[in-house]
Structures are given as structure tokens and as C-alpha cells.
Design a protein around this nucleic acid. Structure first.
Lengths: 112, 112
DNA sequence: CTCCTGTATGAGCATTTGTGCAAATGTTTT
DNA sequence: AAAACATTTGCACAAATGCTCATACAGGAG
């Protein structure tokens, strides 16, 4: 049977009590990167298909420079990766953690 | 101790493709609230015990005003709730979505 | 009532952030 | 070689953010 997205994080909830400053910072950094509507829409796009920079810019109705800037941020957080094909850059989600996180957040806002 | 054990059926990953602007904004707003180290440490504290404002301020080594401001933000995102007992305000996590989200993010940064 | 405690709120300020513009880099075609 | 194309990068600037300070609000004790 088709399995849905795994809803059991490998990290136990009890580990939250022992969050040191460095780890808290890293966690906050990931969330900060996700805390922007442009980047959310961008990641949602990439969840269905790999895309080039200009594709994303067109789909979101934004400048190509802005998208490139955002993709750099997303790359820095290891949320997206890309491969170069000639003069084009194809972007895709880095792993499925991204999707899990977004679904959890979607779950949260939907229950309001 | 009746915390909701309501195992919320996770939202399918396919819903991400259909994210409209309003929903993207809400999702981004939740992440934006989580994208701050002070608030992360604060939520981590609340994951193990309910606390008063002054308790949190003491534990984080910050001013009471700063914590109160942050708690307002967290309340606005429905990530924490509080009950008033006399002149004290006891804060707690609003639901277990918060813990799930943080564990997912912890999972992500740990695999780096 | 007054005083003290716990919390909330508003103003001010320094820092960060997202975007557009323009120039630079790199790749393919002519 | 140049020109066209796709993407990246540096700069600038408005808008947003987090903290501190001071003040206001509310409950309990004397």
C-alpha cells in the first residue's frame, strides 16, 4: 500500500529539553529560511517538479534576480540542490525533510 | 493530563502543489515565528514544563519584557497558550504540532 | 487607600531582510 | 571574434524584526 509521509520524526520529543545554544541556533536558522512566503511558494513548486530559475520566476511572477537570491538562501540551508545543464540550472528539493516540515506546518494552520 | 492524543492525519505531500497565496502566507508566518533562537529555546523549555514569564526570563537570562514580547508573538501564532492564576501567567505549548515541527527541524540539522 | 509584585504594552533604536537594478560570469550559437 | 542567453552577484534602500527602557495595568498584602 502506498505509504504517506512519515509522521514520526527520528528524534524524540524529549531531546527538546536538552537543546544547547548552538543547536537552537541551527534549528532557528532552518525555520527562518522557511519563514518567507516567496520561499514557501518556491519550495511548493519544487515539490512537484524540478525547475529552472527562469521557470520559477515566471511561475511566481517575480524577477529572476530575486529568485536567484532566494535559491542561494535555500541552498545555504541545504533545502534545495541544483545541477547545471549547459547554461541552465535545474533546482530540486534536497531531501524529504522539507516536505515533511511543510506538511506539518500546513497541518498546524489548517487546524485553526 | 488529557493532552490531545488526537493523532492528526498528516497532510499529504501532494497538497503542496496546490498551495494558494493565502495558505503559503500562513505557512510562512508560522515558520517565521519559529525562526528565532530565543523563541526556539523558549518553546524547548515549555516542552518539558509549564512556566511563568519570570521563570522563562530567568532560565534564558533575558529581560522579562523581551520574553513577554516573544510570548505575544507565540500566542499570535497559536503556538503557546496561557492561563492566568492571580497575577501570574502560566504558559504552555498550545498543541503537539509544535513539538513535531521542532523535532523535524532537529532531524534536518542533525543530518548535516 | 498605598505599596509591591508579575505581566503587558508602547516608543525608540540598531540590525537584519527581501527585492530591484545594474554589472559580472559563464555557456552556446553565429 | 561577437552576440544572445541563463544565471549569479554586489550595491542600495525600504520594510520588518528583536531588544531595552520606561510606563501602564492588574492582583494581593498590609
Amino acid at each position: 500500500m502506498g505509504r504517506k509521509t512519515e509522521d514520526t520524526p527520528e528524534i524524540a520529543a524529549s531531546s527538546l529539553k536538552e537543546l544547547d545554544a548552538a543547536t537552537s541556533l541551527k534549528v532557528a536558522e532552518v525555520f527562518k529560511v522557511l519563514g518567507d512566503m516567496t520561499r514557501i511558494k518556491l519550495l511548493a513548486l519544487l515539490s512537484s517538479a524540478d525547475m529552472r530559475v527562469s521557470d520559477i520566476a515566471g511561475a511566481l511572477g517575480m524577477g529572476q534576480s530575486a529568485i536567484s537570491h532566494q535559491l542561494r538562501v535555500l541552498r545555504g540551508a541545504r533545502l534545495v540542490k541544483f545541477r547545471k545543464e549547459g547554461k541552465e540550472a535545474w533546482y530540486s528539493l534536497d531531501d524529504d525533510h522539507v516536505v515533511k516540515l511543510m506538511c506539518q506546518a500546513l497541518d498546524h494552520v489548517s487546524h485553526g
